[in-house]
């Protein structure tokens, strides 16, 4: 089977053609760097994504803290991670990079902004 992927690593968005057999990549063409190769192999064999969202915070200058997964998580679990993120309520202050949820699908959810107390 032959399939074309858009590499999401960088804004170039290379169109990478992959020949796939039994769920494995046999050959690749169209990528401009190594990352493209890695991405497509991963996309075929175990697709994963960073998840970014917000978490409710109490007592802060704003109502939300922006968060993300530290590493990518399996694509099929995006909504599972969202469910966990939606359960969290934080108390200000929150620091940039604070761990919000520990150990979820092999990584953490961390804060991506600072939230001072009101």
């Amino acid at each position: 089977m032959e399939k074309t992927y858009t590499c999401i690593n960088c804004p170039l968005g290379c169109q990478v053609k992959a020949v796939i057999s039994e769920g494995k990549v046999i050959s690749l063409s169209g990528n401009t760097c190594e990352k493209g190769e890695k991405y497509v192999v991963k996309e075929v064999e175990r697709p994963s994504r960073l998840v970014t969202s917000t978490v409710k915070v109490i007592g802060g200058r704003g109502p939300l803290v922006s968060v993300r997964t530290r590493e990518e998580i399996p694509k099929e679990h995006i909504f599972d991670v969202m469910d966990e993120i939606n359960k969290v309520v934080l108390k200000a202050p929150v620091g940039l990079g604070d761990v919000i949820i520990k150990d979820i699908f092999g990584t953490d959810v961390i804060s991506t902004c600072e939230m001072e107390e009101k």
Partner: peptide, 12 residues
């Protein structure tokens, strides 16, 4: 838009 955004924001 960027191709990567079509892939990961729409196609996904």
């Amino acid at each position: 838009g960027l191709a990567r955004n079509i892939a990961q924001c729409l196609d996904d």
